[in-house]
């Protein structure tokens, strides 16, 4: 065993966790190496000191202050919350809380499915071509109007819910429709 092996096993020796064979080899090295002997002695002294505990102590009124804090903290919480955590109150059991959580998730899922916005179609539905009549009409840009870019405004046509909520998405969608129409032969 060399000094680096000794350092790896030092802690296990302090915790009485070395096997008989390793312990013997550890002690053999210890007898012949003054540096490792000093290292181990120092580690033992530090460990002993850590175990002796701290001289600092808790304030004598610690528990009273804790109880006071619990009272004020709980008083600030809403009544339904207090019913959940206060001992002696008709609190809900963990099983009931689990049931409530499942019910809440079910309500959320139903709400999402009912109010899910209609997604804009990625491709134009078959049969709905320009030959069948444009879904919107083009209005030439007026100088000084709110649309000076020259890009045609769209006054008709149905925007999806998402597009109505998000102006950027709506404008982009309209421009793409315009480009696709203009680009056709």
């Amino acid at each position: 065993m060399d000094c680096s092996d000794f350092r790896v096993l030092a802690s296990a020796h302090l915790d009485f966790e070395l096997s008989f064979a390793k312990q013997r080899s550890f002690l053999q090295h210890l007898e012949g190496c003054e540096l490792c002997a000093r290292l181990l002695a120092h580690m033992q002294k530090i460990q002993l000191h850590l175990k002796q505990g701290v001289t600092a102590s808790l304030s004598p009124d610690f528990v009273a202050r804790l109880q006071e804090r619990l009272r004020t903290d709980l008083a600030r919480r809403p009544a339904w919350w207090r019913r959940l955590v206060e001992p002696g109150a008709s609190g809900l059991s963990p099983a009931s809380l689990g049931g409530l959580a499942v019910a809440a998730m079910a309500v959320l899922a139903i709400s999402l499915s009912l109010f899910r916005p209609e997604a804009a179609p990625l491709v134009e539905p078959a049969g709905q071509s320009l030959q069948a009549g444009p879904p919107f009409k083009l209005i030439p840009a007026q100088p000084g109007s709110a649309n000076p870019s020259g890009v045609a405004d769209v006054s008709t046509g149905s925007d999806s819910l998402l597009e109505r909520r998000d102006p950027a998405r709506r404008d982009f969608s309209r421009q793409m429709k315009y480009v696709s129409q203009v680009g056709r032969p």
Binding site: L58, F62, L66, V85, P94, L97
Partner: peptide
Amino acid sequence: SFIYRFVGDVDLAEDLLQDTLVKVYTHKH
């Protein structure tokens, strides 16, 4: 003693101990 050794400050250790015990109370379930 655990918290004091950790943070090295008596007042802070006491505050953190109080926080711990309040958490045990409020999160007992």
